[in-house]
Design a protein around this nucleic acid. Sequence first.
RNA 1: GGGCCUGUAGCUUAGUCAGGUAGAGCGACGGACUCUUAAUCCGUCGGUCGCGGGUUCGAACCCCGUCAGGCCCGCCA
Length: 533
Amino acid sequence: MHWADVVAVNLSRRAGKHIISTGITPSGEFHIGHLREILTGEMISRAAIDAGLDVEFIFIVDDADPLRRVYPFLDEEYDKFIGHQIGNIPAPDANGKPDYERFSSDGFSYADYFLNPFLDALRAIGVNPRIVKNLAAYRSGKFTDCIKTACDNADKIREIIERVSGRELPTNWFPYSPIDTNGCLFGVTVTGYEYPLVHYTDANGRKCSSDITHGHGKLPWRIDWPAKWAWIGVTCEAFGKDHGASGGSYDTGKEICQLFGYDAPQPLVYEWISLKGKGAMSSSTGNTIGPMEALDLVPPEILRFLIAGSKPNKAIEFDAGMSLVNLADEYERSCARNLADELNDESISRRRKVQLEDLMGAVRLSSIEHNSITDSSNVSFRHLALLAQTKTNDEQVWQSLALDETNPPSDILIDRLKKMRTWISSPHFPAEMRVRVINQPPLELISELSNDDKSVLTNLTKMLETCDWDADSIAACIVDSAKSIDKSPRIAYSVAYMCLMGSKKGPKLAPIIAELGKQEVIEQFSRCLDSII
RNA sequence: GGGCCUGUAGCUUAGUCAGGUAGAGCGACGGACUCUUAAUCCGUCGGUCGCGGGUUCGAACCCCGUCAGGCCCGCCA
């Protein structure tokens, strides 16, 4: 059974409505690591819906969190906003300076600046969660009951965190952080509590009070999280391994949640996505591929397939090079198979059956539209990469695929080709996929040629001299050059690839030769022949 | 220091909860096809399951130890 279906089965033991939750702090550029958070939750939602449950999928935006430091992409001016809630400070402009004008005119915040493009990417990928903004929830009083419970039970919460996480909290620790009169969360020390007021001193030592029912503050993360479970009614949440480690915030949250009179949601811990050969993804070091950048290169269903096809506890190494080709082609191959039929075959082993079920689940959860037919383009990535490189305009590509007005290319295929062209012109496109023609004899390869190979090459060169310069005629020449000495056309293709591209294999050759021009090809073949002798 | 996760074929991995002949996909190799030759089809090769002990009739799986990588024990999410 697919991992998302396993979670759905577990959820079905709990009656009533299910709320599957995800959450991210928009403190900087989003990257595809964040996509795993969202997609893991979304796929559980789909599986739960398929299992007949009443399900809502939500995305909590943690815009009540403070700006922690001036990130490299920010101007020094942001220094004064450190400790301020990111949903309550201006977004950076093109130069990284705070855009006060926009913030005061339409309230466009730092959090919105990073969140909005991510939401666009989510739509493109078929994810449409209900958005819950944390800051607004605090301000509208959604957290009030939980804040009161937390303040009333400060000692119990302290005990839970100290026992479960094994760390000692400072003596002045308090389970609620008010913002000071400037809106800063840092440097504030709570000195007393008399409902509904908390008394505190700010960074400058001034004594102030804050009414906890007004939402001018924030619960620390380890309390904020279970409080959200309680007021929203979250029944399942997928979260990263950082939260999932024992003694981590899920463990403490599970117990704190009980104080709010609520049972913790079903957890699912997922691993990080890293960039192949570059380690973990990090916004601050620039070691990221943003979801938007990824979507320019990778068809959304393939991105879904990446997540759906790996068990959540497996680390994913993403790279936009050869792995992407393999991933995309695996998706296409899987779509082309009739997995249901294969599964019905009584003779397959139990093991095989499990594998087929998992694959079928992964394909099912990869379609952009829930339970639509698969988003297959029916053309392999490899083949499309080749066509996109050898055909300058799209019409020629469609022609080559035998598509015309009566049988037009699908929207998916049109989108794929567009992305393929972007990918080809990007630095991510792998060198081994690039069609490149050489003009020097590849001496090392040629030295291995047999006598048959040499005769075929001689024949081919001669035949091409009198050949009509179109793909069909050239293809015939290639075949005949081998046939004329009773050899497989394979030999002819192989020597031609070696001489023209320096490899033993390659993309469909005749159209490429046709585009190269007769003189160029014959000269290169001749140079190769000369260097053999 | 304490805890958690991961380690299985060249690569990606299933199988570990419930011990019972190590299974796939890709790649590689071989073959077929007068041939969309980076396609398709058929076939073959490939594994001391990180390492060492233990329990057991039997261990990838359970137990102990050990090595490697990652993570948590922050007002971080």
